[in-house]
Design a protein around this nucleic acid. Structure first.
Lengths: 154, 154
DNA sequence: TTATTATATAATAATAAATATTATATAAAA
DNA sequence: TTTTATATAATATTTATTATTATATAATAA
């Protein structure tokens, strides 16, 4: 097919679920599966427009929501602005800069997290609680933005 | 002063920062420091209105944002709707029901989290990265909402 | 005390992200 | 070809949040 395993996985899921693969949809999936920058819906929109100038923002939202409901993209809620989308659904967290909005992936060791989750979280919840998704975020100032601040005096 | 340590802590911070303590502000602080339900701005608005019917929603937002900037309340971004506010700033996570919106506190062991954070997160980021806040969320269906679903066949 | 200044609030307007609606286009099935 | 379903485009709507402006309240200075 192609050399992007995430793209392939999403295409297989799309097919399996019986959704049709339109050119716009394929382009959206390509963008989100290749991007490392956690784009917003508008970012994706602007990229898709390069190839399909008539595409509407609604189409972007519909497709990204659909992919999220399929758990093939992850929605990241930031503190200041719009939802950001992540085509990488592997276990990881995010460090979000509150100034420039940049989102950096934060590696999380699977063994550590599983242990943390299984022993510390799961048994604290009602046994009927069904967890479908998680989010681990750290908010602050990235290296670049932090430097511009006045240095702390204390 | 009174028997609510969170309320006291916030009042002291308010005074220390030189902000005046208006009746509306006091009421907002009381509500958020006593609530366990992670209310939205509108929820707080409706409660404050019981005592001050003329209060405006803007006043609620202004005060909650101010408290958030003082790190005396925590903003919780949910997947579906508006921002929720938490007067409990101690270390803990949240289990958020995607159906009814209910947010349950999830205890996190401080030692475990510190270890997880110090050894696994901190050294993965640029040394200049300044983390100011964190969020650990689990999204899913709470006990009540999960039961109403059709049971899985597989 | 009165005048001045700053801050908080109330009422309203504006913004912007996200969703809903409707009509058209495309594809699949009969 | 006709019918049906789905996806898209264009537009309108909703709603949370923020901005603006004017008023009210409190603090301070004269």
């Amino acid at each position: 097919m192609n050399s992007n395993p995430r793209l392939n996985a999403i295409l297989i899921k799309i097919k399996k679920m019986g959704y049709s693969l339109t050119p716009q949809r394929l382009e959206i999936i390509k963008i989100i599966s290749e991007s490392k920058s956690h784009p917003s819906a508008t970012d994706v929109y602007n990229k898709v427009k390069e190839l399909y100038p008539m595409v509407s923002l609604n189409t972007i939202y519909k497709n990204l929501s659909m992919l999220a409901s399929l758990h093939e993209v992850k929605e990241i809620k930031t503190m200041q602005d719009s939802v950001r989308y992540d085509g990488d659904i592997s276990l990881h967290g995010h460090a979000i800069c509150e100034k420039c909005g940049k989102i950096i992936d934060v590696e999380i060791d699977e063994f550590d997290f599983k242990g943390f989750f299984e022993t510390k979280i799961k048994n604290k919840l009602d046994e009927n609680y069904r967890i479908r998704n998680y989010g681990v975020e750290f908010y602050g100032l990235c290296g670049g933005c932090g430097k511009e601040d006045s240095p702390s005096k204390t």
